[in-house]
């Protein structure tokens, strides 16, 4: 069986970042975490990362800015947003710029996993 795809997690909240990392791990995914958009862009390698999960509101570059920047650079990797905001405008802005999915915290974890499996094909870790 080939190495599972790598998923990037960008969230400025350390507890949430680690929680997502562990969730992906138990579901058989491989993950890598970044505390902010800038750190992610510095290490981004599009041959390796198959999907991006990002918080929307972060100091510095926010999640939607990050997605737009990736698109502008020509990277079409799927982006899943997780946010505390129920705010419709934010959701609309994210979806307009081509988001794959938009989750509100606290996360429906099973739903997130289902979406990831859809995005990454039938790939399963376990």
């Amino acid at each position: 069986m080939s190495e599972p795809s790598l998923i990037a997690i960008v969230d400025d909240d350390a507890a949430m970042r680690e929680a997502l990392y562990d969730l992906l791990q138990v579901e058989g995914f491989r993950a890598v975490t970044f505390p902010d958009a800038e750190a992610f862009l510095d290490h981004f390698d599009d041959r390796e990362i198959a999907c991006l999960i990002t918080d929307v509101r972060m100091p510095g570059l926010d999640g939607v800015d990050l997605q737009q920047q990736l698109r502008a650079l020509g990277h079409m990797l799927p982006v899943i947003f997780v946010t505390s905001d129920e705010d419709e405008a934010t959701r609309a802005r994210a979806m307009r710029s081509g988001a794959t999915a938009f989750f509100t915290k606290p996360l429906a974890n099973a739903e997130l996993v289902r979406v990831l499996r859809d995005v990454l094909g039938s790939e399963r870790g376990d």
Partner: peptide, 14 residues
Amino acid sequence: VNQPLSAILTNAET
């Protein structure tokens, strides 16, 4: 408040 609660929920389910 939602931040730590989200982390708690995800960690518990994991």
